[in-house]
Lab assay of single mutants.
Amino acid sequence: CHSECLGNCSQPDDPTKCVACRNFYLDGRCVETCPPPYYHFQDWRCVNFSFCQDLHHKCKNSRRQGCHQYVIHNNKCIPECPSGYTMNSSNLLCTPCLGPCPKVCHLLEGEKTIDSVTSAQELRGCTVINGSLIINIRGGNNLAAELEANLGLIEEISGYLKIRRSYALVSLSFFRKLRLIRGETLEIGNYSFYALDNQNLRQLWDWSKHNLTITQGKLFFHYNPKLCLSEIHKMEEVSGTKGRQERNDIALKTNGDQASCENELLKFSYIRTSFDKILLRWEPYWPPDFRDLLGFMLFYKEAPYQNVTEFDGQDACGSNSWTVVDIDPPLRSNDPKSQNHPGWLMRGLKPWTQYAIFVKTLVTFSDERRTYGAKSDIIYVQTDATNPSVPLDPISVSNSSSQIILKWKPPSDPNGNITHYLVFWERQAEDSELFELDYCLKGLKLPSRTWSPPFESEDSQKHNQSEYEDSAGECCSCPKTDSQILKELEESSFRKTFEDYLHNVVFVPRKT
């Protein structure tokens, strides 16, 4: 048989008469490798580009789960590009990614509803959504962080984005990388972005840091009482949809009607710091009717980097990364020049730590249904340095008659930039024990000054392991946590139920 035959053949030295091919099969003959313009397919066939392209389009058009959109890589027609490569849609070739590779997620039936953290986790790592997304989240724990972890990498949506009755959302900033909504599939009414009845939605994105392009379709905003109209108009300008909307697409009466839409800028007039305090004062603000001013709200939190936005980490279910302080308005003076500047002394802060701070007014709604208010920009203030805590785990070892090696770990709280350490030492008198000992005694162990690591005695271990207080009263049991108490109650309830079950099964009433 021919060298490319495997198993047997019907005619000697003829690659077209093989029972099976050793390498690849091409047009009725066995070959060692697939010549151009053919590609290896499933490690035994040679196919042309049209064959591989037909497989790709067949799966793409069917949208069946589990099928493969075949691509070409290293002269092979394979189910998908290997790690580190992405497909070129024009020629199906796998090309190296520039940075992290995109991950295209194809949605069944063309859309997916995100109504819980669990459903959001199914899209973790996706960068391109081939379909439409509907966000409908009523509640949950730590929602802002969970949504950002699972949806934060999405850069492109081919269909539309719909935010509907998501009472738990305060902001859409968890879509931190969303840059493009194509609108290839539109919501009824030709809408590519749809926001309806979101009672706590206050911000779409921080438009000073976020760009969003909507290729096709219109915007729809109705019944978002805490979303200011200025935020919607800003989205029109940034996304390129200005002029597409009709009169009733953006409701003037049901958007922002319960919001404090600040239209003035508060400026800080005085800032002073110490290692654990920050004193702030800002310019006074009074609405047209000074009785509408209820006070100020001061927001602050630790910020290692200057990239904080107002609604980071917030949701309507209680999660809030900001510390909020309510401040009463100052006494009002008739003389504008003698107006008191409101302020606040922030206490209990960490030394040498940068804080993000902003302040906003708290006002009631005027009778004319106009909203007044003022808010400052987010500023960054760093507390002063102070003395560091003591170095940890000092170790001293003498390696000769004239040297001592000293080692330690950095302090747990540096409280500033540590530039150097101060080492103090003092000579001590020799131990009298060394002169009084009889060095001729056998088995004498000389006193040693070398360091030995501390260890816990058996008594201390027994005390720590004991669940009861000892007789001397030195140790006591740790208080039980809520989960331990709940577990004990469940076990007790189970024992009672099981005992009742045994009584009912074992003891049967005697027939009379």
Rank of each mutant, 00 (worst) to 15 (best):
V104E: 09
H106T: 11
L107I: 06
L107D: 03
G110P: 04
T113Y: 10
I114R: 00
T118D: 08
A120H: 10
A120Y: 09
E122C: 05
E122P: 05
G125T: 04
G125M: 12
C126N: 00
T127Y: 11
T127F: 13
T127V: 03
V128K: 05
N130K: 05
N130G: 04
G131F: 01
G131N: 02
G131Q: 01
G131L: 00
I134M: 08
I135G: 00
I135C: 01
I137K: 05
G139Q: 15
G140R: 09
A144N: 03
A144P: 09
A145E: 13
E146R: 09
E148I: 12
E148P: 09
E148S: 06
A149H: 08
N150Y: 13
L151T: 04
L153R: 07
E155K: 07
I157D: 00
S158L: 15
L161I: 14
L161S: 00
K162C: 06
I163Y: 01
V170W: 05
V170R: 04
S171N: 08
L172N: 01
F175A: 02
K177A: 06
R179K: 13
L180W: 14
I181L: 07
I181S: 00
I181Q: 00
G183F: 03
T185M: 08
I188N: 02
Y191N: 04
S192G: 11
Y194K: 12
Y194Q: 07
L196V: 14
L196G: 06
D197W: 02
Q199N: 09
L201H: 00
D206A: 14
W207N: 04
W207Q: 03
K209M: 12
H210M: 05
N211Y: 09
I214A: 07
G217W: 01
L219Q: 02
F220Q: 02
Y223V: 11
N224M: 07
P225H: 10
P225V: 10
L229Q: 13
L229T: 06
H233A: 04
K234T: 14
K234G: 13
M235I: 12
E237A: 05
V238W: 04
V238N: 13
S239Q: 05
G240P: 03
G240S: 03
G240Y: 15
K242L: 14
R244E: 06
E246I: 04
D249H: 03
D249Y: 13
K253H: 12
K253S: 09
G256Y: 06
D257W: 08
A259H: 15
A259Y: 04
S260N: 02
E262M: 04
E262R: 09
E262F: 10
E264G: 06
L266V: 03
K267M: 07
S269R: 08
I271K: 14
T273A: 07
S274K: 12
I278G: 00
I278R: 00
L279R: 11
L280T: 12
L280Q: 00
L280H: 00
E283S: 08
E283G: 15
P284K: 08
W286C: 14
W286F: 05
D289S: 06
D289H: 06
R291T: 14
R291P: 06
L293R: 02
L294I: 08
L298H: 00
F299L: 10
A303T: 13
P304S: 05
P304K: 14
P304T: 11
Y305C: 08
Q306R: 12
N307Q: 01
F311Y: 15
F311P: 11
D312M: 10
G313L: 08
D315G: 09
D315Y: 06
D315S: 10
C317N: 10
S319G: 10
S319C: 10
S321V: 09
S321Y: 02
T323F: 06
V324C: 08
V324L: 11
V325G: 02
V325I: 15
V325C: 14
D326F: 03
D326S: 05
I327T: 03
D328P: 15
D328M: 09
L331F: 05
R332N: 04
N334S: 08
D335C: 05
P336H: 06
S338Y: 05
S338I: 05
Q339W: 06
Q339V: 08
Q339M: 08
Q339S: 09
H341Y: 08
G343R: 12
W344I: 03
L345F: 08
M346F: 05
R347T: 12
G348L: 05
L349H: 00
P351Q: 06
P351K: 03
T353V: 08
Y355F: 12
Y355K: 00
I357T: 13
K360N: 14
D367H: 11
D367N: 07
D367A: 03
T371F: 04
G373Y: 03
G373K: 03
A374Q: 03
Y380H: 01
P388T: 14
P388W: 07
L392K: 05
D393S: 13
P394G: 05
P394E: 04
P394H: 03
N399Y: 07
S401N: 15
I404L: 01
I405W: 08
I405G: 12
P411A: 08
